[in-house]
Design a protein around this nucleic acid. Sequence first.
DNA 1: CTTTAGCACTCTGATCTGTCGAGTGCTAAA
DNA 2: TTTAGCACTCGACAGATCAGAGTGCTAAAG
Lengths: 358, 358
Amino acid sequence: MANRHEIREDELEGRSRDVLREIVIQYVAHGEPISSRSLAKSGRFALSPASLRNVMADLEDLGFVYQPHTSAGRIPTDRGYRFFINHLMRSRRLTQHERETIDAKVSEGHELDEVMQLGSRVLARLTNQVGLVFLPTLDHLVMRSIDFVMVGERRILCVVVGTNGVVVNKVIETEQIWTRDELSAAGAYLTAEFSGMELESIRSSMLQQLDQERARFDEIFNRTMRLGVGVVEGVMPHGSELFVEGATSILNKPEFADAETMKKAFLAFEEKEKLVRILNLCVNEAGVQILIGSESPFTQDYNLSLVAARYGSGNSPLGMVGIIGPTRMEYARVAPLVEYLGRALSRKIEESEQEQNR
Amino acid sequence: MANRHEIREDELEGRSRDVLREIVIQYVAHGEPISSRSLAKSGRFALSPASLRNVMADLEDLGFVYQPHTSAGRIPTDRGYRFFINHLMRSRRLTQHERETIDAKVSEGHELDEVMQLGSRVLARLTNQVGLVFLPTLDHLVMRSIDFVMVGERRILCVVVGTNGVVVNKVIETEQIWTRDELSAAGAYLTAEFSGMELESIRSSMLQQLDQERARFDEIFNRTMRLGVGVVEGVMPHGSELFVEGATSILNKPEFADAETMKKAFLAFEEKEKLVRILNLCVNEAGVQILIGSESPFTQDYNLSLVAARYGSGNSPLGMVGIIGPTRMEYARVAPLVEYLGRALSRKIEESEQEQNR
DNA sequence: CTTTAGCACTCTGATCTGTCGAGTGCTAAA
DNA sequence: TTTAGCACTCGACAGATCAGAGTGCTAAAG
């Protein structure tokens, strides 16, 4: 995904690279179009403004920068940011404090969703951007046990525990009345029969068995199975949630100062389905994913970028965490933060998994 | 609370009242300052603009309306809205469609928090304002049963059911390892001992007993009690949550068109503690509560108003639902909607309570 | 061939101006 | 008590002007 734009490293030789890098860095830092003069003054080039102007004109021809209007300085295009990120950026190392803050927050939580929320919140604060967590569907959750608690005449709390320690529960209403003993037997049976399988396959297997065995008229079996289907179907949608943290942080960003842009950005956040779709694609890629403006249907038109990393236990990805912010952001700082959080979460998950399976 | 401003009905006699009413209605409808001329043109007064100007000047002296600048029309002040609501407003009756929409949404949900969220969302949509639900603390939840489910070596899912059918659960981590049988015994004991009491008193009673009986060195008793305290303390904070729905709806309101106001409004929503404090006061009052601009610390400075109603079972209030919007809103339409939803929710709760206690 | 100084040109944004229209308050007449 | 008339105020808007920033191009210098 990252390289789909086919910008090869050798497309830009020495001086132009340096100039582009400097433009991105300066623009990210100050938010104003970069003029040839200010570049010259930066002292990083032994060149006059006039020469720099030539280089900048070339960069513009190549589509790495543009001018908002005729007599303005240059601003990086999405393509410019992309090249910067792929070839020019020097990631900043995390400070002690950043590492500690993240670690502290991550170990503060207990349940999966709590940890995720805390993580994205701390990320939002450290980067000053909008944090997000994506808890994917539980389709592939490997079931370890199913339990039931009676909470009313026809209401049963179903508890599903995954091998990774995730606990999901849901109250479901039943047609028939169950006794405590029946319920506990049903839980034991379903656990014995289906533990070790993924929820999705449990579901289909249950439906299949229910279909095949209809002829048997085994009342208990049928009831139990139907209850099981209810559980699995009630519990599965629990994941697949997207949390957005600190959306108000964009209120203070100069690029969203005018009402119109602000409004657009907020509306963008409302379109969670789009975002979910994109994150669902990214979840298969390792490492930090960066999507800049036009590179994704979610961020295009809004001057937004997405920086996200997946988390999960070694074998299987679980979901994504990351941030959304204006295309003009400190990628060199944000990317390592997101990456670190992703790792920290994964570590936490693996730990609790081991603990669970001892 | 509603009358604390001490505006007596007789403070305004016939003509002035009519003019004030018309000003509020017109202003709410169009959002522009109302001029003497437009009032005259409305046809509701057999008076010339000049006469109306006199009346309007009086209203201004009394503090019911003001001019944004010298040569502008009049706009109601908070005090003007207050008088309008208390004495002049004719509540619109709900349409068939509105009633049906609310009823449908309310009966769609099952668990308490789900129902509340659905309710506030439908309210937000119908009124085009920002919906909110306030689930108060569970301190006064009357416990019906406590159950435990093992979900790991040292992790226990605690399930507390209230007499009103509310189900709360939380995973807690324990120091010691419990067996299934021990857990089920502990659950039975705690249920027998404390059911029928409020969580808050259960908590203090447990702590007291734990303190008194320390000398006894009854290991089982101590473990069970400590677990119980863990449950109650883990579960209580579950309520007391405030959900805000559809905050983006204010993006489309003309009074929040400029970036500055928009920003302020959003920041206001972030200050949930303030809002919670106010709602906590309101929860003791019956009927629809309306707080206009300066009347509450939350809404002042932001040109916001709060319209809320409490819900709960007959005996005890549970929480509040309502909306937040610009002071300029159709109170005559919004208030009945909020009231209706409050009633619908209460009815739903009472129903499920009865069902529960059969 | 590359770099740079110089210069004309363009565009933005701030400031000022004058005009128009809306709306008021006041006064005096009905 | 009501109303017509009138002077006055204010905001919004459209032009006009101007300074500043920054560019592109050309021609000279290295």
